[in-house]
Design a protein around this nucleic acid. Sequence first.
DNA 1: TCATTTAATCGTAATATTGCAATATACAAA
DNA 2: TTTGTATATTGCAATATTACGATTAAATGA
Lengths: 110, 110
Amino acid sequence: MGLAKTEIFTDEQNQIALFAKVFGHPARVAILQQLFKLDTCICGDLVEEIGLAQPTISQHLKELKNLGLIKGNVEGTSVCYCIDKQNWSEMKNTMLQFLNQDITLQSDCC
Amino acid sequence: MGLAKTEIFTDEQNQIALFAKVFGHPARVAILQQLFKLDTCICGDLVEEIGLAQPTISQHLKELKNLGLIKGNVEGTSVCYCIDKQNWSEMKNTMLQFLNQDITLQSDCC
DNA sequence: TCATTTAATCGTAATATTGCAATATACAAA
DNA sequence: TTTGTATATTGCAATATTACGATTAAATGA
């Protein structure tokens, strides 16, 4: 198969999985950290910084953009990417709720 | 390829990606939510609850166990799974640090 | 012992992901 | 217009993931 049976899960479960999936590759983690670190926008310096081929970085950027976590502005021949703070915040709420499930859990059982 | 070039990333980036990857499938999200919800351990009721075949659930449980997020106790013919609170907490710290990167970010740039 | 129950493992088909070379596109400068 | 620069897209090979039927393994009960 190779494809998840999304129809049997809730929207929330699918959404969490979608967000998590995009963080499931170190290159995308590194790209996001770099964008946060520079605060200001960055272009294809990412290719040099990360150390993967340009088409590969471009592909990862596309996935991040598809989820709305980053946005890109064309500036001349180069493109300037940065974090979409609004969408990042919304994503964070969803993920935090999932991660914080343990605070209501009483005791170990096994 | 199909395999990530983990050697060019930091341990932290790879670890974040590993954790995120395991959350990147709705079935594993659902399993974890169910284990949290029941507080007490649950066995292969997960198979009925989730709606995937038994070998599929078993496979997902294995991945969660490999990362240390859950543990399983054999009880007679059945196996009782539950959250490993200690490891969950450690994972959460790592993920929270990643998700909270935005709190130091000043202003939008693009 | 033998049948039953429960869960893990094996094998495999269908599909997804990763990475990059080659190419295309879009813009700027000469 | 031509040339160069930066990025996106295409195509493809290697590998990973998902799902499940068939089987195995382990424990219980008759």
